[in-house]
């Protein structure tokens, strides 16, 4: 261990941030958990400790199970499609195409726009009215003779959240593409060349050399997209407002705070959200920490 006067100044310099993160991240998470384990069901109640009662009771609330279902449908469709599209775009762009930089710019620009602005356009595009009165895609389908494709989009019973995933896919496939492109380019040309010398075709090189090395990038993409998906909020507010058809845990929590005014239930919903994200993120962070230690 190095001498204290070597490292103490560093610790002191970081300490304001340690305090801020300690209070605002870990302190508030603790406070939120305390609320979730209390019976503070109105803003003026004192809130006695009730253990995990709320965590059980929430499953018999009218809206919660539906909200969880919606988030799951949204997540599965969003993650799988964004992953597939991002990988496909990266594959097409990998070996240099005319206008590569231009394509990259186009595929990534949706990332620069807020979900609220995105939501406004997609609310127009996914207008659920029948084709004769509709704007957006339903009207377009009618115009080009594909009227049978017109549908109710996110208002579709039970599976509507699959449509809600469209704007999210539109916004984030480019990001997945960028991750995969970085991954492709991380596979050394020497390795590919060695396989070619051994008589592999380009396709074999791809399946047996490149693809196995993409596992870490794929994992990272799933984690990043997946955790964003579980938290989805702005997009749904902008597309659907607070309609029940598009309820998700984040909207449920918002309503508990401002409509129902039940802090304990709001905090319980928030705790479940944190738990869902932590299950994905904590192993990822531990894995990153370990691999950095090994590297140094």
């Amino acid at each position: 261990m190095r001498a204290k006067r070597d490292w103490l100044p560093g610790l002191l310099l970081v300490s304001p941030s340690i305090i801020l993160i300690g209070v605002f991240v870990y302190g508030l998470i603790g406070w939120n958990f305390q609320l979730a384990t209390s019976d503070k069901h109105t803003n003026i109640a004192d809130g006695e400790f009730v253990g995990l009662d709320n965590f059980i009771a929430i499953w018999s609330e009218a809206r919660w199970p539906g909200a969880v279902w919606n988030a799951l449908v949204f997540t599965v469709v969003f993650v799988l499609t964004a992953l597939l599209l991002g990988w496909l775009l990266a594959l097409l762009l990998d070996k240099g195409v005319r206008g590569e930089a231009g394509f990259r710019t186009v595929f990534l620009f949706p990332m620069a726009v807020s979900f609220i602005a995105t939501g406004i356009v997609w609310r127009w595009l996914m207008n659920p009215a029948p084709p004769d009165r509709a704007v957006g895609l339903n009207a377009l389908f009618q115009d080009i003779g594909l009227g049978f494709l017109a549908n109710e989009w996110w208002l579709t019973d039970r599976w509507g959240m699959a449509a809600m995933a469209l704007p999210a896919i539109w916004q984030l496939s480019g990001y997945v593409m960028a991750l995969f492109l970085a991954g492709f380019r991380g596979v050394s040309e020497d390795l590919r060349e060695a396989a070619r010398v051994d008589g592999c075709s380009e396709r074999q090189v791809y399946w047996h050399v490149v693809l196995p090395q993409l596992r870490p990038v794929t994992l990272v993409a799933v984690i990043i997209i997946g955790h964003m998906s579980l938290k989805v909020f702005d997009l749904i507010v902008a597309v659907a407002g607070r309609q029940l058809a598009a309820d998700v845990p984040a909207i449920y929590m918002w309503d508990q705070v401002y409509e129902v005014r039940d802090p304990a239930m709001g905090a319980t919903a928030a705790s479940y959200l944190l738990l869902a994200v932590a299950v994905v993120i904590v192993p990822y962070l531990v894995w990153t920490l370990r691999s950095e230690r090994k590297a140094s």
């Binding site: 998470i29 939120n32 938290k231 929590m253 905090a267 928030a270 959200l273 994200v277 932590a278």
Partner: peptide, 8 residues
């Protein structure tokens, strides 16, 4: 973290 977990 989902910021909902610190919001209230």
């Amino acid at each position: 973290i989902p910021y909902q977990a610190v919001m209230i």
